[in-house]
Nucleic acid binder design. Sequence first.
DNA 1: GTCTATACGAAGATAGAC
DNA 2: GTCTATCTTCGTATAGAC
Lengths: 192, 192
Amino acid sequence: MAEPTPPSRQQLVAGAADMIRRRGLNATSIREVAKHAGTPLGSTYHYFPGGKGQLAGEAVRFAGDTVAKVLAKRLRAGPVDGLRAFLALWREILTGTGFRAGCPVLAVSVEEPADDDAVLAVAAEVFTGWEDQLAAALREHGAEPVEAGQLATLVVTATEGAVAVCRAQRATRALDRVAAQLEKLVAAAVEG
Amino acid sequence: MAEPTPPSRQQLVAGAADMIRRRGLNATSIREVAKHAGTPLGSTYHYFPGGKGQLAGEAVRFAGDTVAKVLAKRLRAGPVDGLRAFLALWREILTGTGFRAGCPVLAVSVEEPADDDAVLAVAAEVFTGWEDQLAAALREHGAEPVEAGQLATLVVTATEGAVAVCRAQRATRALDRVAAQLEKLVAAAVEG
DNA sequence: GTCTATACGAAGATAGAC
DNA sequence: GTCTATCTTCGTATAGAC
């Protein structure tokens, strides 16, 4: 890392992540990402020789890491706090954008793994990472290993699914209902 | 309905649904849908004057109704049977296509509601319909109304999320874990 | 080394030939 | 009434000017 990351490069990654979570991967054009970041189109291919695939991969990784950091911090106060932070994070994204933004990791997971399954592999790692964080916290607080793993997966999948359903329904109802169920389950798992 | 539905029209709808669940909405071109159905491009605009938006809307509705019929049939044997059928249905789609196909309703829910929010409205209806079917079955088998609603939403969101996660991870692990948790919850809800 | 201008293909949609 | 051929726009990617 002798080379410091140029600000415009990071802006392109963050901009791509934002656009992907709103429109999906295919509807996100490099042209518009560049325009939104204020950089010319040519610069994009200078920073990302791998083209759209590379940019999308880094965008998904960036979004995944951002969530993982919040999760790591809040899980230190216990699984219930971590869950609440996770849910609040997605709720804020939904309501803060008028239900126009969702999850970029989910977005790339739903579209074609045509020839560019590199992006999909990043998405898989991000999902697994979130699950592992939650499962570890549950185990550390007395949850049974098998139960911890299943519950962690349920939290991630239900939340991701709820974000998509909320976007379609333009209401937080689904996420609120999921939150009620998951909080009950997580609380019960760390007691027993 | 004096006009019988032409076979090619239905093939276009079914083909569009299949392509959307694999590639997503934006990557699904009318050209390729027409080619796959063996009909010329012009015919598509004859059958669907509303263009891609109309075709996509009917495709999502078609997919939603197909699932709803399976759900209605199997829910007559009870909520647990309905849940199992729902999960088995998605599991079969994943494994039967090498994790290349997912849920078309989820796919359109994750992509841009740019100007064509008609498709998104159909997706919302489909999700709500599935939830209502499950919630009604749960209530009829003794589940508390609030619990029934929350649990029905959890089933739909967790399953949809799991389908996406499974696609990314190219494994049924997430869906299997979700199945274990949901079966336990549904069974408990109909007892109490 | 950065950016402008362009090549090339494919998308949605339609006009007009059969 | 059905389909072919085309119009226009926008996508990725690059070649070459500063």
